[in-house]
Amino acid sequence: MRSTLLIRYLVAAASVALVASACTSAPAGPLPPAPEPTSTEALVAQLEASTVPVVVNVWASWCHPCRTEASLIASASTARPEVRFIGLNVRDDPNAAREFIATYLSEAQMDHYSDRSGRIPIDLGATNGVPVTFFYRPHGELASLHFGIIDEPALAIGLDEISR
């Protein structure tokens, strides 16, 4: 009887701790600037001019899986400074995008651009869905693209492929 009560208290305490610890805090301080609008031509020109490998991660603030993979993208961008990370925000409200960057990608070493029409990923060879991650070798050669949420092994292999 006592052990059952104890287990109930432990479960209740664990639940409260879980909720408390998991609450994402609102971004403190001023929001970062909104992602700069770009076009397919401008982005391709950047990729072709790049002498380092580039990862282009397509995201949107309304995309829940994007939130989940954001921390992995952010940590990879800081762990691999020899690779350039570009965030391409698609079909989004600029203010929502700013909040997303402040909340989920504030630690990331990456440049963000916006594409309100959502046309650029399709022009680059993907589909309409987000998230999508493109891996480019230096000078804009597409090595691979990953549809959907990217996990650590896939991101690590993609980075290894473009870094050789």
Binding site: T24, H64, P65, R67, A70, L72
Partner: peptide
Amino acid sequence: VLVGVNPVTNPGQVILIRSG
């Protein structure tokens, strides 16, 4: 929880095993 996503307010993400 480790990446700051609240499982109570985002219960649908619990089944996104691919996310980690």
